[in-house]
């Protein structure tokens, strides 16, 4: 049931995912190109209800938050780790409720959300103070109680406040992960797993060099291909059809290819 102050994800298409904290008392309104939606028309309904606009035929689906939806809606303070890569990182890190995880940098917090869902606790580090403060505010407001944000440059200062041999998993999304790796290896328990995320193969080389004492190194790349499902009526004949036909009913149907490719290195 949606209540005042709840975080609600507002879905009206793959390229239009927003969110709102419901504020019926102050006459909160969510607006997009499909129409306007009064917050009070959501309150009392179940998460997962399709809501009609008050001023048009438009609709929006009011969904319960998930890390995937949040990643589609969050304001990008930095390039984010997309849900495709986040899923593989969390799975290969083997994180579970008993796991303590360290992450650097926090960035927009999309990856932190995925880690928070799976881990017992997440210690996330960000060297940009404004980003750290913004992320902390979001995590608190969204109820990610197992996340601790620290404003700290892990390449210079290491993972502040974490003990030697204290974390089960480390995730590094930094321009120079190799500079943070000696610190990461210090706080990682024996047998812990480390993942780094880099767009360039040169970064992977330097990262692998810094991981020379580790076993089971693996470097991989993941991509996602989406399919369009539609009925097509084809005319017969060798000549091109007389009428010009649109291939796609609307832009949302056009095949999309996510270019969020990255190299991941495992230990």
């Amino acid at each position: 049931m949606m209540r005042s102050d709840d975080l609600v994800m507002l879905y009206s298409g793959p390229d239009q995912v927003d969110y709102a904290y419901l504020s019926p008392e102050t006459a909160g309104v969510y607006q997009n190109k499909h129409g306007s939606f009064q917050h009070r028309s959501l309150v009392g309904k179940a998460f997962g209800t399709r809501i009609r606009a008050s001023n048009s035929d438009g609709w929006v689906d009011a969904l319960a938050p998930t890390p995937e939806l949040w990643a589609s809606a969050v304001r990008h303070r930095t390039q984010i780790v997309h849900q495709l890569d986040a899923a593989v990182v969390c799975f290969e890190l083997g994180v579970r409720r008993s796991s303590v995880c360290a992450e650097a940098g926090t960035g927009s917090g999309a990856m932190t959300g995925a880690l928070s869902r799976s881990c017992g606790s997440v210690h996330t580090y960000e060297f940009n103070e404004a980003r750290a403060t913004a992320a902390q505010g979001e995590f608190e407001r969204n109820g990610l109680t197992n996340v601790t944000v620290r404003h700290c440059d892990v390449c210079e200062e290491g993972f502040r406040d974490l003990d030697v041999d204290s974390v089960d998993a480390v995730f590094l999304d930094l321009p120079e992960p190799w500079r943070a790796l000696p610190h990461a290896l210090r706080v990682a328990k024996p047998g812990a797993r480390i993942a780094t995320y880099s767009p360039c193969v040169e970064q992977v080389h330097r990262t692998r060099d810094a991981l020379s004492t580790c076993l089971d190194l693996r470097t991989l790349e993941v991509r996602q291909r989406d399919f369009v499902v539609k009925d097509v009526l084809l005319e017969t004949g060798l000549a091109p059809p007389a009428k010009r036909r649109k291939d796609y009913q609307n832009e949302d149907d056009a095949p999309r290819r996510y270019a969020n490719c990255a190299f991941l290195a495992w230990f």
Partner: peptide, 8 residues
Amino acid sequence: SETWLRDF
């Protein structure tokens, strides 16, 4: 969708 995976 389908995912595409490549090891290096």
